[in-house]
Design a protein around this nucleic acid. Structure first.
Lengths: 355, 355
DNA sequence: TTGAAAGCGCTAACAG
DNA sequence: CTGTTAGCGCTTTCAA
């Protein structure tokens, strides 16, 4: 591997000149040419580690997803994160940054050590964190103490003393409740995710608050595990009780699919007998019958917001930035019998795997 | 940020001693204690850039996904990749490596420059590449020339002059053909992905070859775009021709879902009137009705194989490693009316979002 | 416009 | 067992 020195030797100039020449510094255009030719000839590309050490900048950011072993697979590994990563990458690319990716479990008790090393290692300039669970953990202090730029994806309701992007779960669930009560439902149910999941907490809160505001009632609640099966059995449980809710909000599309599966199998029509709304606008939403009315989290946009804020923090540390990306209602056919007639407010169906 | 020097000063020893003490070198246990205490007190964590420069090792690998603008979104951005990343991460973690992630488009005409910089930059020690399309591109030469370790996810059929992991598309499609002909189908159809997609090419080849081997016939073929809609319209096209195939292999689960959607809507029963098999074992496979018989690519295992081979190459460069991860048939209900009766060879249904 | 020299933080070779 | 010294590849003063 050729180094600066090699190029300098070949071009017959000093390493300083080569550095200047290659980085657009003030050198004679003729020497610049000579240097460039030498570099080309040696197939020289700068060793970035040398540059990093010197400049103190690694031009790298990291995404770390926190998970918990205490919870089923599907909750920890949402492929939706892939779209978020693409959002991060989009702004990283624009700014000539690389992105690192890591997954750490809260149960790895060295998670704090991980962040300490991250701070001291200087190998990334900032970190985007998806905490996922409302779990006590000292990593924020570690980061704050090291004055290390970081942004979390989590609800504003959890405190505004750090930088975060809020995906608007409360607002999204509110939209669901408004839609459903607007269609006339008075007795509603919820199939929620795990009780400690940050999104689940907010979705339930938004749904319930709005429901009551509207004079409707929450008559059934089951916590599922975000899986198709758990949606199926949750709905089964609800069905065994006296009277089914008129409408059920499922805190993700997997559970909604499971719920619909149970209902259809039991000869209960969706949405005629019971209306269903999901959350996430997962790819499967248009694969099932009826197509699922749901909430789009805009994961790509969340990614760009997260990255944009992180970059701002890297440039100007010491502030606390917060953004919320409001989710979008995606009207399809599972929430009301007349949905096809086209309700006033609809965005309509989007492409099969919208986002 | 405290440095080695700071620790040395506080502990009253030289920097060399600190380095030794902290890295388990041969020092007096008492000095080691002193040093450790000093490090702790200063909240010292080693700057890894310094170490990298010195050792020449970055302890980082990269995953780059190549895409093409010429093709619909859904093809380029398969969330299945997320599971592959988890596989890579699993072995990276075990080996104390970090993982970087990048997406580059073939249309970015600086893709070769990207790889050149990667090689020269010394900021990653090896790269895993998902080429996705059978597209002419010089990046392999760039990497070979730089003696840079890399492993690609692509079929063995494309040549064995590089290191690669084969996901067994040919074999998977062969399983589908065997299953379907074994169930008695003689007139088969295929809804394939885009013609240049490496997986699509192999899946069609495996399917067709096996079909003909078995004395059955391919009577219909449509290229879709891997989307639900394209599966829908592809099946619609097939249906307008005289006689529907007895069984249709869809090259991914999205298209299978679309195909089933069309058939069901048209009053054609699946699997009774036409059998459907998908590919990928996507999450949606158990969300739809009937549940989809499909092929599991084992993306997580692909990730571990890719990473394991890359590490081997980093340790001992200059070889060409190849592995194939055989896919698994997942029997559910869309391929034959009597599927529930349980065919002899089945693995049975797995958890909702198997992989 | 160019070169010499220092230094980023660390590890390794060598002396003592 | 410990300290001194050199050097990884680069950028950046500072002089010339």
């Amino acid at each position: 591997m050729a180094t600066l020195k090699d190029v300098a030797a070949l071009a017959g100039v000093s390493t300083a000149t080569v550095s200047l020449a290659l980085n657009g510094g003030p050198v004679n255009e003729k020497t610049r040419e000579t240097v460039k030719k030498a570099a080309l000839q040696l197939n020289y590309f700068p060793n970035k580690i040398g540059r990093m050490l010197n400049s103190g900048r690694s031009n790298t950011i990291e995404l770390v997803i926190l998970t918990s072993e205490a919870v089923p697979n599907i909750v920890r590994r949402t492929s939706l994160f892939y779209y978020l990563m693409e959002g991060i990458l989009a702004v990283a690319d624009e700014n000539n940054l690389s992105m690192r990716f890591a997954v750490k479990s809260y149960e790895d008790d060295d998670v704090n050590a991980y962040f300490s090393e991250l701070v001291g290692g200087r190998t990334v300039e900032g970190v985007i964190i998806l905490p996922q669970f409302a779990q006590a953990s000292g990593f924020t202090q570690v980061l704050e103490r090291g004055k290390f730029p970081f942004v979390m994806l989590r609800p504003a309701a959890f405190g505004t003393d750090v930088s975060f992007v809020d995906m608007g779960n409360y607002e999204g669930a509110r939209m669901v409740a408004e839609l459903l009560t607007g269609c006339g439902a008075r007795r509603l149910g919820i199939i929620n995710g795990p009780a400690t999941h940050v999104d689940a907490i907010e979705r339930e809160r938004g749904f319930t608050d709005t429901l009551l505001d509207r004079g409707a009632a929450l008559v059934a609640k089951v916590n599922g595990a975000y899986t198709i099966e758990s949606g199926f059995t949750a709905m089964q449980q609800m069905a065994t009780k006296k009277n089914l809710p008129e409408a059920v909000f499922c805190a993700n599309d997997y559970m909604a699919a499971g719920a619909i599966k149970f209902l259809t199998g039991a000869g209960i029509r969706v949405p005629h007998d019971v209306a269903i709304v999901g959350y996430d606008n997962n790819d499967m939403a248009t694969a099932i019958e009826p197509e699922l009315t749901t909430i789009d989290n805009r994961f790509f946009d969340l990614g760009t917001a997260l990255a944009t804020n992180l970059l701002a923090l890297i440039k100007e540390p010491g502030r606390h930035l917060s953004t919320t990306i409001p989710p979008k209602l995606v009207l399809r056919r599972s929430h009301a019998p007349d949905a096809d007639a086209g309700k006033a407010r609809g965005h309509g169906t989007r492409r099969s795997r919208g986002r």
